[in-house]
């Protein structure tokens, strides 16, 4: 049988010490900053290339209907919207003001942030799906005049099937998983928050 004082003595005589040196932390600080900047840079480059390709298609290919140009503009808009949200997300993750607040307030911040991300992710999936569907419908108008009717019809049928699968299988599955993940996290955060309440 040990009393608390003996347990404390035992604790103070323990060996486990961090196996991380000051230099390692400094290097990680440098590489961490670079990694974030690199990631943002590559994402921006990828988005810029995608938008340039779409603009080039719009200029180089002579489409017969204005709806195709609108479809290209919608696609480019979706890509830019994605990048904008990624940048905003990075900015929020790196918002350090909350990091210095009381644990209870920090838990509330984490909870609100996760709920917002969840709403954003699930809502965005629907927005992307709708925008891509609209873009294909608009492009379909051009195809109607260009392709033989049987080929146009089979392409339309294929696209409808693909969108139905995306909507009823992939989207539902994604939203279900996201909601389950977030619910587990919120439950844990609420449980921990409860532990910090005054007795």
């Amino acid at each position: 049988m040990k009393g608390f004082d003996e347990i404390q003595q035992l604790w103070q005589g323990q060996k486990p010490e961090p196996n991380v040196s000051f230099e390692t932390v400094l290097n990680r600080i440098k590489s961490g900053k670079n990694a974030l900047a690199q990631k943002l840079l590559w994402q921006s480059v990828a988005v810029a290339i995608a938008v340039i390709i779409l603009v080039w298609i719009g200029i180089a290919v002579s489409f017969s209907t204005w709806t195709t140009y609108l479809a290209l503009a919608i696609m480019a808009g979706c890509i830019c919207y994605y990048l904008f949200n990624q940048l905003d997300d990075y900015r929020q993750i790196n918002n350090s003001a909350c990091l210095l607040s009381k644990p209870q307030d920090y838990i509330n911040y984490l909870k609100a942030f996760q709920q917002k991300r969840n709403r954003f992710n699930t809502r965005n999936y629907t927005i992307y799906e709708a925008c891509i569907a609209i873009a294909f419908v608009l492009y379909g108008i051009e195809m109607y005049f260009v392709l033989p009717f049987w080929m146009f019809l089979s392409t339309v049928m294929f696209m409808i099937c693909w969108f139905l699968i995306c909507h009823f299988v992939f989207m539902k599955q994604y939203i279900r998983n996201e909601n389950a993940r977030i619910q587990e996290m919120i439950t844990n955060l609420e449980r921990i928050n409860g532990q910090f309440r005054e007795e």
Partner: peptide, 19 residues
């Protein structure tokens, strides 16, 4: 101040790893 940051960092451990 450092302890406060450490505690909040531990709390956000939930974000990346399941308990």
């Amino acid at each position: 101040w450092i302890y406060r940051i450490a505690v909040n960092t531990c709390l956000s451990y939930l974000r990346t790893a399941k308990r």
